[in-house]
Amino acid sequence: MPFTDKPFRVGTHTLTSRLIVGTGKYATYDLMRDCLEASGSDVITVAVRRERLVDAQGRNILDYIDLSKYTILPNTAGCFTAEDAVRVARLGREILSGLENPGADWVKLECLGDKKTLLPDPVATLKATEELVKDGFQVLVYTTDDPITARRIKEAGAASVMPAGSPIGSGQGILNANNIRICLEYLKENDPDYPVIVDAGVGSASDVSYAMELGCDGVLLNTAIASADDPLTMASAMKLACTAGRLSYFGGRIPKKLYATASSPDTGIVRPAGG
């Protein structure tokens, strides 16, 4: 019987795709629109405080996003304090409420520690998570791959914990698969359907597939598509990789062995004369 996957639920939202893509760094809004379509994603993330909401021609990014098709996941990219992140999250909610988009009730929380590494500040991130949960948000939290921090964030009420594979935009892929595995173990203990999404560092389709093969529920990426040599082709590759990795995880890989194991049986075969 063909494999039938479970619905992908994050808080009260049910997603059709396990790939979430961003809207930054594209050369043009037209290219962004086409890549969003090619990725197959139904949730796209938009930085509320993005520097260029309107381009030099006076075009607004929202003019190129079909709000009846996509659920917007507003994010707090560029925030370096809990207070700033909470304020930007509330601004995003107001914007999307006015647009009647279902993404108004959730937020992707980024609370960064410094501009060089763009790594999250764990203390400020936890503080902002607690505040936003109290304020009624479903909070998807960008964090490091530290399992203890991940568990604390879940305990604070996060709708999803999103450990980084590697630093934002670095393209290094998943640098510490063991930590991701432990995060999955900690976060899914007694709650196997809790959504864990790898966020940041993806560079290629194989990175997406690897994240899914580890047992992650989804992948969020932006730069890997937007800054690729051929973004449209890469968007299609990411879509296929996400599906392939998910199927591979449930298919169950064979164990790694030091020596060869013959694919063909050594019994019932034709023997040479005198053998």
Rank of each mutant, 00 (worst) to 15 (best):
234 M>K: 13
163 P>Y: 00
261 T>A: 14
228 A>E: 09
202 V>I: 15
35 C>Y: 08
134 K>I: 05
238 M>L: 15
42 D>L: 06
263 S>M: 15
196 V>S: 05
3 F>L: 15
187 L>K: 04
258 L>N: 13
4 T>A: 11
209 S>M: 15
139 V>A: 04
149 T>G: 04
185 E>F: 11
31 L>K: 02
260 A>R: 11
232 L>P: 09
271 R>M: 13
61 I>Y: 08
146 D>L: 06
181 R>V: 14
192 P>A: 01
127 K>L: 13
135 D>N: 06
137 F>N: 03
29 Y>L: 15
17 S>Y: 03
3 F>M: 13
45 T>R: 11
35 C>P: 07
252 G>S: 00
141 V>Y: 10
169 G>Q: 07
24 G>L: 13
116 K>P: 00
107 V>D: 08
198 V>Y: 00
33 R>F: 05
119 L>V: 03
12 T>M: 06
81 T>D: 01
210 Y>D: 08
39 S>N: 04
224 A>C: 12
126 L>R: 12
211 A>N: 03
4 T>W: 07
2 P>M: 10
119 L>D: 06
169 G>Y: 10
202 V>G: 00
146 D>C: 11
265 P>I: 06
16 T>K: 13
136 G>P: 06
17 S>H: 11
121 D>L: 11
12 T>P: 07
23 T>F: 11
207 D>H: 09
113 G>S: 05
145 D>S: 15
60 N>Y: 10
255 P>E: 06
180 I>L: 07
37 E>Y: 09
19 L>E: 06
65 I>N: 08
12 T>N: 13
56 A>C: 07
162 M>D: 02
87 R>L: 12
212 M>N: 03
20 I>E: 05
264 S>R: 13
99 L>W: 02
160 S>T: 03
110 E>K: 11
121 D>R: 07
90 R>V: 02
66 D>Q: 02
188 K>G: 03
102 P>W: 09
165 G>F: 00
152 R>D: 13
110 E>A: 13
65 I>K: 14
262 A>H: 12
119 L>N: 08
70 Y>I: 03
160 S>K: 00
203 G>R: 04
220 L>M: 11
118 L>K: 03
208 V>A: 15
4 T>K: 15
150 A>K: 07
194 Y>D: 01
170 S>T: 07
177 A>E: 15
35 C>Q: 05
102 P>D: 08
244 A>F: 11
271 R>P: 02
224 A>T: 08
122 P>E: 08
159 A>T: 00
68 S>V: 05
247 L>N: 12
39 S>F: 03
90 R>A: 04
19 L>C: 05
2 P>W: 08
49 R>T: 08
42 D>P: 04
227 S>N: 15
145 D>Y: 04
204 S>V: 12
39 S>G: 01
160 S>C: 08
159 A>Q: 02
211 A>G: 12
51 E>L: 13
259 Y>L: 15
76 T>W: 03
194 Y>H: 00
84 D>V: 00
124 A>M: 10
98 G>H: 09
242 C>A: 15
2 P>K: 14
257 K>V: 06
171 G>M: 03
39 S>H: 03
250 F>H: 14
207 D>G: 07
